[in-house]
């Protein structure tokens, strides 16, 4: 059951001491080098996390056994200033191709002098994510990222 009430977006800001082009490049091309590896959804440990550098590109993880698991897709690819990706995982722990069920993450890179960049992140439309029935089971069996997403899904469906 969806309702009109929205979950407030998450905002984050970090200032990095590098030019805007480098900030964008590390965020995207080198995504796998900095993403905390404990936050993943595949059954296997995380071997790689990939953000394909184009609009319509995939955003996915690769497990140590080579299996791939989608996280979402690239909605906007505007180097070196803006990136929008979707996050679309259901409560049943499956990739959900329906764009109506996608939360969005927008990242903006703004030069703050020649060697400094402000990176602003917004994770929004959290209420679009579809939950499953087995949230409690999933939390018991999971933990970390999976527990988070299940909490997510429940919040999305339970919001009065």
């Amino acid at each position: 059951m969806s309702t009109a009430s929205a979950i407030p977006a998450i905002h984050g800001t970090v200032t990095v001491g590098v030019p805007v082009e480098q900030a964008f490049r590390v965020f995207t091309d080198s995504f796998h080098t900095w993403w905390p590896p404990q936050y993943h959804i595949g059954k296997e440990d995380l071997a790689d996390a990939v953000l394909e550098p184009r609009e319509g590109g995939r955003w996915f993880e690769r497990g140590v056994d080579g299996s791939e698991c989608d996280w979402g897709g690239v909605l906007a690819w505007e180097p070196p200033h803006r990136l929008v990706v979707t996050w679309q995982i259901t409560g049943e722990w499956q990739f959900d191709p329906d764009p109506a069920h996608a939360s969005e993450i927008e990242v903006r890179f703004t030069a703050d002098g020649p060697g400094q960049t402000v990176v602003e992140l917004e994770h929004r439309h959290l209420d679009r994510l579809v939950g499953g029935q087995a949230m409690r089971d999933a939390i018991i069996g999971g933990g970390g990222w999976s527990a988070l997403l299940e909490t997510f899904a429940t919040a999305a469906t339970a919001t009065p």
Binding site: I10, T15, V16, T33, W35, P36, F152, T159
Partner: peptide, 30 residues
């Protein structure tokens, strides 16, 4: 209700991710 928990979890994860990103960006070759 879950919403506060969800948001706190997410804030924590993004905080960790952005801190890691900052270190990686500043350590990367120009």
């Amino acid at each position: 209700d879950g919403v506060a928990a969800l948001r706190a979890w997410l804030e924590r994860i993004w905080d960790e991710a952005l801190t890691a990103f900052q270190k990686a960006a500043e350590a990367a070759p120009i």
